[in-house]
């Protein structure tokens, strides 16, 4: 356990030598993560909503997401770095993060729509809502918690991969792990690992709060009113979530 004490002492001392200071590495880590997830969201959310609203293209999305899961992000990162040239490392890295984040966000977007009780949508239609109103006033608000769940999974995958990207000299919190391993400084390696783990846990916690906050008011009221239906809805939820299972990274 003294290793951990040494690592924490190293973090508190704040003397990172030739490496970036901890605050800067944290900012780099967060900026790369945000860039990857936001670009992926711009691409994946409209496609996912289209699939969820029309039911078209679902098989293709599932197949592509399944195949993407098998692609090692570390390998893709290095491949793109070599193909694009060493001068374009940041671009290579962001493309990797986007590719990595798309499947989770896509699944979150369309499973969010699929989890909605069909009767709610039929009720909206019978009240005279247009397709656009059904999309924006029923499907988007009710699908939001699962979409945020997809964003949460994507963010965690990307934050882990940004860490690994320190191997190609991208900076971020991973630089302490990579440099520490090269210099055989165990306290620095463990310090880096602790910082990354804490950052991931904090991000996960923030997303958990957001995910809870975006549950529509009506849905929350219904859940309180009829606790008896919770078992059945849990079963349905389990089935829906199987499609969007996040993967560790």
């Amino acid at each position: 356990m003294s290793y951990f004490a040494d690592a924490i002492a190293w973090i508190l001392a704040g003397d990172t030598g030739l490496m970036d200071p901890i605050w800067l590495a944290t900012v780099q880590q967060l900026l790369y993560t945000a860039a990857g997830v936001l670009i992926a969201a711009v691409v994946a959310v409209p496609i996912g909503w289209y699939i969820g609203h029309t039911g078209r293209g679902r098989e293709v999305a599932v197949a592509v997401s399944g195949a993407a899961r098998a692609v090692p992000s570390f390998g893709l990162l290095i491949l793109l770095t070599l193909v694009l040239g060493v001068l374009h490392k940041p671009e290579a890295a962001v493309i990797t993060f986007v590719v990595l984040a798309i499947p989770s966000i896509l699944a979150g977007a369309y499973t969010g729509f699929e989890a909605i009780d069909r009767r709610v949508i039929d009720a909206g239609r019978s009240m005279g809502m247009t397709e656009r109103q059904i999309l924006w006033r029923i499907e988007v608000p009710l699908g939001l918690p699962l979409l945020v769940g997809g964003l949460r999974a994507a963010t965690l995958q990307v934050v882990a991969t940004v860490t690994i990207s320190a191997y190609i000299g991208l900076g971020g919190l991973g630089q302490y792990i990579i440099s520490g391993l090269q210099l055989r400084q165990v306290n620095v390696i463990i310090a880096g690992a602790l910082l990354v783990a804490v950052l991931a846990l904090v991000l996960d916690g923030l997303f958990a709060v957001v995910q809870h906050a975006v549950v529509a008011r009506g849905v929350r009221a219904a859940a309180v009113a009829s606790p008896l239906s919770s078992r059945a809805s849990r079963r349905r939820r389990g089935r829906v979530e199987a499609a969007g299972v996040p993967t560790p990274s």
Binding site: A160, T163, I177, S249
Partner: peptide
């Protein structure tokens, strides 16, 4: 929570 921890960190923290 275990899931959340990035793999490279887990590879270092568990043996340490």
């Amino acid at each position: 929570l275990l899931y959340t921890i990035p793999s490279i960190a887990l590879l270092i923290l568990v043996p340490s």
